[in-house]
Design a protein around this nucleic acid. Structure first.
Lengths: 260, 260
DNA sequence: CAGTGGTCTAGACCACGGG
DNA sequence: CCGTGGTCTAGACCACTGG
């Protein structure tokens, strides 16, 4: 058995500070509450700051720090005037072969999706979008702004673009059917498939945090994607969406032995 | 021009609380400091809590809240006993065609990578690893624990597995060459390529936050991946690494017109 | 209205790092 | 030693929610 350890181990490597674990009482409280929360169903009310303070014999600041830490770990949501509630994160797997439908993906995960149309404007497509959709700049299309909810909580928000010829009566269609995927399949007679997706995590800018109903700076996924008709067919839909990291556990998968 | 707005817009959709933007003075301070920080080079010292308090005429709590918010937005790092410093995030693009080498990717981004070996043990491969590497359970291999730094700050930590026959003298080789990719190419004569990768963001568990030198619960990428020799050749390396989200802006790209 | 979380002050002690 | 950030108390006011 060979063991090899570098000399820099003790001091945590080259010139790096060892961040001390908070040893205060709130760290203990976090542990206790996190354990208790683990078993509760989503949406369950959690003790308030005052209750936590009384129970553990600490002031409000310490109780508040503990609950804030639970929120940072995405175990609870805190709503002013209402209280603190357990929260679950829904898994959202993004992989080359998977269908790009939000509602279907979430329903498979056992959640209740719901999408609200904030705007649906017929406009000439701007250059970057037109290029992605492979049509001339200025082609008429729809600019769609929607917010999606999971269990009635906002989870995603963003802009989607598609050419107008696909579904000329899109605003009407959206009144009858929430799923854009379904509308495209049944009205436009196409089969949307994920062509490419680009994803990362960023602190939500104000624009996004407004749409997501969260605070600016909260971690959120920024996902851009393009859907095509069938395998490599014409581009159908260009999307740029923000997804709350505390609502959805996005998992991205590249390759599967299939890629280079 | 068609405009369509849902009736639920005003109240923020179905039963959803509008989270108020913190209107206090610390929000103003955050804006001012964030603007000033934007131009500074990475590692620059930022005003301390006391200085911020004096400058803006607020108590320490408000000043501290502002600096804490900047840290949450990954604009600064705060180190006890040292101070608050600007920090940059290095871009790390993960895409089907890209090479899986950490050091090369970071050098291309203009950063100075450095990897420290924490452990390099010759062990029989456990079942799950053996299955991924497509060898019988118990095949002799190396269990490698390493931490990678960017500009001397810990950024990634995790376990890597490979069969022992590839580089029998791995501990020695690692003393001479940091890059596992280079060792595999030059000593084992193989061409490691990314076969698949799975990535998500999680609050770092204690195990990971210890290795990353951050606090438990800080957002971190969990990336598992398998490298193969050439295009679809034999499996070489199975990896599970944690990457600090405040150090690396991981961007994942699926497809490119090439996928289904 | 009472209860919740969001913000803030003033003051304190501690752990840590550097001179 | 001093200055840094990390934690905590006690108390205050505010914004928001529900009944």
């Amino acid at each position: 058995m060979v063991v090899h350890r570098t000399a820099t181990w003790a001091g945590y490597g080259p010139g790096v500070a060892r961040q001390s674990v908070p040893a205060g009482s709130s760290a203990q409280i976090v542990r206790v509450l996190a354990d208790e929360l683990a078993d509760l169903p989503s949406g369950t009310r959690v003790a308030s700051e005052a209750e936590v303070g009384r129970r553990f014999g600490v002031g409000r600041a310490a109780a508040r720090a503990a609950l804030g830490e639970l929120e940072r770990r995405m175990l609870v949501s805190r709503i002013q005037g209402l209280g603190t509630f357990t929260r679950r994160r829904v898994d959202y797997l993004v992989a080359p072969g998977r269908a790009p439908s939000w509602s279907r993906t979430l329903r498979e995960a056992g959640a209740e999706p719901r999408t609200v149309v904030l705007a649906c404007d017929a406009v000439p497509l701007p250059p970057d979008v037109a290029a992605a959709l492979e049509v001339p700049t200025g082609t008429r299309g729809f600019r769609l702004v929607r917010r999606s909810h999971i269990d009635e909580m906002p989870a995603a928000w963003g802009v989607e673009w598609l050419t107008a010829d696909l579904v000329p009566e899109l605003p009407t269609a959206l009144r009858l059917e929430e799923s854009l995927d379904t509308i495209l399949r049944e009205t436009a007679g196409v089969r949307p498939e994920r062509a490419w997706t680009r994803a990362s995590v960023e602190p939500a800018p104000e624009e996004a945090s407004d749409g997501l109903g969260c605070r600016p700076g909260d971690p959120a996924w920024l996902m851009a994607s393009l859907a095509r008709d069938g395998a490599g067919g014409r581009p159908l839909l260009s999307t740029e969406r923000w997804v709350r990291a505390d609502a959805v556990r996005v998992v991205l998968e590249l390759g599967h032995g299939r890629d280079t």
